[in-house]
Design a protein around this nucleic acid. Sequence first.
DNA 1: CAATTATATTTTGTATACAAAGGAAATGGA
DNA 2: TCCATTTCCTTTGTATACAAAATATAATTG
Lengths: 136, 136
Amino acid sequence: MTQYMDCIVFLLAKAYQKSQNHLKTRLRPYGLTSVQALLLEALWEEQGLTAGEIGKRLALDNATVSGVLERLADARWIIKKNDPADKRVIRVYLSTKAMKHEASLIQERTTANDEILHGFSDAEKILLKRFLKDLL
Amino acid sequence: MTQYMDCIVFLLAKAYQKSQNHLKTRLRPYGLTSVQALLLEALWEEQGLTAGEIGKRLALDNATVSGVLERLADARWIIKKNDPADKRVIRVYLSTKAMKHEASLIQERTTANDEILHGFSDAEKILLKRFLKDLL
DNA sequence: CAATTATATTTTGTATACAAAGGAAATGGA
DNA sequence: TCCATTTCCTTTGTATACAAAATATAATTG
C-alpha cells in the first residue's frame, strides 16, 4: 500500500481530483463545470477565439473543445459563428449571460483557489506552482 | 491568459495529464491503462481485496472500480469471486498473467516516475510529494 | 485547372470520474 | 420472526480526456 502512494502520477491525480471538487462545488449553482468555466475565462480575456486557439490556450484537445463548446452554446453561455474568411473555422463569442457573470465566476474560482491552498504559506504556494509548471 | 494559468486546479490538471502520459505510454504494450495498473499494484500487495476495499485504498469511487474490475477481468488480469460469507461482496484475485508481469509493471511505473521527475532534485521531489499529500 | 495535400472542426469510440438510481443481501430492532 | 434500514456492487447517465476517423474547406503543386 505504500509504493503507489508515492507514485507521482497517483498523487497528482488525487490532488487534482480533490482540488477540483472545491471548484466544482462553487460552480454548480451556475450549472457550469470547471472546464466550462475555464473556457469562459479564456473568452473574457479575448473574444472571438477559434476553437483551435482555445484548445491551444487551455491545453485541451480538439475533441474535448468541440464537446465543451457545444454544451456551452446549448446553455447559452457562448455563441459559435463561422469565420466568413474561412468556412472551416469556428469563432466563439460570449453571450450576455456570460458577460453578466464574469465577475462572480472569477470570484468563485479565486475563492476556491484560496480554499484549496489555505494550509500553505505564501512561499509554499509559489513553490508548489513553480513545481507544477515545471512538470508541464 | 495569465489568470487561470495561475489557477491551482488548472495547474494540477495539466501536470497530472502530462505526467500520466508518460505512464500511459509505458503501459500501452501491456494493454493496460494507468488506473488498471494501479489497481493491480494494490492486489500485489494484498490479494482478495473486496471491490469496496480497493476503492478505499485507491481513492476510487465504486462506479469506477466496478468498471475497471470488469475490464481487467475481461482481459484476464484478475479473477472476481463472490465471498461465500456475504453474497454481496466481490473479492478480487490476480491471475497467473498478472503474477507474471508484476516485476515488469512495477518497473514501468518506477521508470515513468523517474522520467517525470528527472528535472527535480531529491529535495524538490520530497517537497513536491509533501505538497501534494497535503492537498489530499 | 484539376488533383493532391493540408487544415479545422466534428464525430465516433474507449476509459475514467462522479452522481444517482437500482437490485440483492445482510443487519438490527420491535 | 418480520420488516425497515443499511450495505455492497452494478447500472445508468453526464462530463472530460484522448485516439482515430470522418467531413468540409483551403492551400499547394504539376
